[in-house]
Design a protein around this nucleic acid. Sequence first.
DNA 1: GCCGTTTTCGGCCCGACTGTTTTCAGTCG
Length: 567
Amino acid sequence: MSITNSEIASLFRKLADLLDIEGANPFRIRAYRQAALVIDTFPRSIADMVANGEDLSQLPGIGKDLAGKIQTIVKTGDFPTLDEVMERTPPVLTDLLQIPGLGPRKVELLYESLGVETLADLETALRNGRVAGLPGFGPKTVSNLLAELEKLRLKGPEKRLPIVEADPIAASLIRYLSAFEGVIKVQMAGSFRRRKETVGDLDIVAAARNGPGMIRYFCAFPDVRQVELRGVTRGTIILKSGLHVDLRVVGEKSYGTTLAYFTGARSHTISIRKLAVKNGWKLNEYGLFDAAGKSLAGADEQGLYKAFGMAWIPPELREMHGEMEAARSKNLPDLLPENAIKGDLRVASSVAPLSELANRAGALGYEWIGIADPFPSDRSGRKKLQTRNDRIDRFNAGGAAVHFFKTATIEIPLNGGLPDDSDLLTQLDYLCCYPANHAGSEGADPTESLIRTMDQAKALDLPVILLQLTGRQINAQGRLHVNLDAMAEHAAKLGHAIEICEQPDQLGVSDTQCQRLLQKGARLALASGAMSPTDLSMMKYAVWQARRGWAESRNVANCRHWKEVFR
DNA sequence: GCCGTTTTCGGCCCGACTGTTTTCAGTCG
């Protein structure tokens, strides 16, 4: 079984952490971290690229040296550089870095002077008073560390929150802050504004006449468990759910540069700052200034990007995945708007009666909905699906404003294809096919069976939507090893589509995978995957992820009139 | 360790806040 991108990235991160504790050249450490980030979010399998003999030093942030190290890791499974460092510095030390307030310098000091290696060592040293004597460790630090250790024991390491769950929390925070007297502007920033699939915390930026007052007001938010930090321009609270929320308040003239800065992503922000330095300018939260200190931009983001000869970049694209070049050459995508969605491609019939679904669809501005139920394997199941199909036909014949498609979800076994039931299959408008992903299929490659399925469906003149291609789960990597390039090219050739869906147990392709699929000419199908009426709103999050994947309306089947969805 | 139309050396983003200091280091974002 070949090594995954995230496994390679973890090795580099581990090395960077250990070098950090050793006090190595910080720029070298940054290079390893940067490479880890690039590898982690890269849409293709690095191991496959090595097998194909492709030149890895073409990847951003990866030069000749790192390309060679990656090759060694992929081919031999060994990482000699990491082994050497682990001989000098105990690898378990990186566990200590997860404690807020403990950075590499303090970890090094604890290890060198007290021999502290593990979390248990740390607790003992804190309790018997040996830590308190160290330079930089006062009584406050000791009690903070004990509190953090307790938190870690109770809750485990902080997990990232799905944006689906963060969305209502963000909305309530913005509602609360908008009610502050003296607020001029306030909005979400950070990874939430970039619509990342999961968020680690929430960042909010505001312009206000009374900054410190607004921070105090923020710290009094009803759902606060603890105020972590309360400064003049910045506050951090921890909600009862454990979620960290940051607020920065600046003057109106700095709102745009502050918003841009705290929207990130970090690599995107750094790259803009580098452009400023190159021009002899200075960019910080408070504005963009020339050498004489004259303000060139600050109040809004448009002005900031314009100063560099770029179009305004939508937050979803600010990930250093090619957006800077596209903005400079005026080639940014015209991102899929939420209101361009004309229908939902996969809704279970159990959600509601057709008439009620039609009402809900109308309220969402939809023209059509695809009704999807599991494809049956026995006689009674066939009968039920046929009855459902008849019901849909009768409803459509009634001339309602909303059209319903008949479809079914079909699990494609490894080494298999479509079920041998063309009578029933051809009663459907299209098929929703997903690769088998049971316990024990980790690392399996469903590419061949899915290609076969696409061919079989084409012979029956049936369009296919491919779901759950990589077996991804929130907070975990994909469990299937599908060749996405091959999927995209074959689907494009035959007129099939690939799904984006944000139901936690039915995840579609990720943002960077989406971007890659579009480059290969694939068409996207967005679905709520709804099993209940409120789930219909999950479409919003599919749109967000499609936007992160550079999707335009023309790439998305959902933007078409019902007669043309699969043309 | 990466990177480059001010290239093969010498740079590498920048500020807020805390806890520890008596002017600043470490951490964080």
